[in-house]
Design a binder for these strands. Structure first.
Length: 269
DNA sequence: AACGGTAGCAACCGCTATCCA
DNA sequence: CTGGATAGCGGTTGCTACCGT
């Protein structure tokens, strides 16, 4: 006897999620929080496997997700972390707020891998494919990547400043879009104890940004979601991933109020 | 305009880890 | 301690949009 299937295969829908399904899942998670994924499809009225719901939520619907391509600094960080951690995508993702393991894995396989190969770096070992190159160039693969891409880990930090504009008012948000990542690169690369700790299962940074359990009792204030300048960005990005398709009818009145309070009504939603 | 090849990404599958009775 | 249930992870697949011919 094999392992029991995670869900009843019969009648379980597969394939791309529809806006309607997204709506149901968002609705459910917002009002009930994340718990017992197996029960979610039933309770949310979805004909999906719980696993599929979890994946859809964590990889696509989660509020704190950034959308769009990884910045150069983020790539840099991924490369460096990969050199140290290997294919531990979840560990790597934990160091890139707003990015999922799946996203990073995909980006690695489709973009970074090719870049590294183009540069003569083995994406698996992070060693130069041509040993002669390695003898001439003593810099690390990560540094090599930076050089080829005309970015300097430390320069990026200096030029772009800190991502968090609240802490750095000297540069515009557009200019410092990769500052946080470069700071992460710098701090992580130079912090041996941090790297060591990453081998242990310490709490990832992401956990501080995304509280898994919406605080329903505080719904009047923030519906348990991390609404801030950074964290409400997901709502502004909603139309990028289809929420506009079903409108915000899926949100309760309270949630709608919150959305309006943070500027979501700017497009007449 | 039609077709084929390719790249990118969302989603699935199967395995492992963890929790709990 | 054991075994079942569930969550999480990483590899892989398959769909779709894009691009070149």
């Amino acid at each position: 006897m094999g392992r029991q299937p995670c869900c009843d295969k019969l009648g379980v829908k597969k394939g791309p999620w529809t806006a309607e399904e997204d709506k149901k899942l968002i609705n459910f998670i917002l009002s009930n929080g994340q718990c017992c994924w197996r029960a979610v499809p039933k309770l949310a009225g979805l004909r999906r496997c719980g696993k599929s719901c979890r994946l859809r939520w964590t990889n696509y619907l989660r509020p704190d997700l950034k959308r769009g391509l990884l910045t150069q600094a983020e790539e840099q960080l991924v490369i460096d972390l990969h050199a140290r951690l290997g294919n531990r995508w979840s560990k790597i993702a934990a160091r890139l707020p707003g990015r999922t393991d799946n996203e990073i894995k995909n980006h690695w396989n489709t973009h970074i891998k090719k870049k590294l190969l183009k540069m003569g770096i083995d994406p698996v070992t992070h060693e130069p494919l041509n040993k002669q190159v390695s003898s001439k160039d003593s810099s690390s693969p990560a540094e090599h990547f930076s050089q080829v891409n005309n970015i300097n880990i430390h320069q990026v930090e200096q030029n772009d400043g800190v991502l968090n504009s609240e802490e750095n008012s000297t540069s515009s948000p557009a200019e410092n879009s990769s500052g946080e990542e470069s700071l992460l690169v710098d701090s992580i690369c130079s912090d041996v104890s941090l790297i060591n700790s990453m081998w242990l299962d310490e709490t990832p940074l992401m956990d501080t940004l995304w509280d898994n359990t919406p605080k329903v009792e505080n719904a009047n204030n923030n519906m348990g979601l991390p609404i801030g300048e950074d964290n409400c960005a997901w709502l502004l990005d909603c139309q990028d991933f289809g929420i506009h398709d079903f409108g915000f009818n899926c949100f309760s009145e309270v949630e709608t109020n919150v959305l309006q309070a943070i500027g979501m009504d700017r497009k007449g939603l």
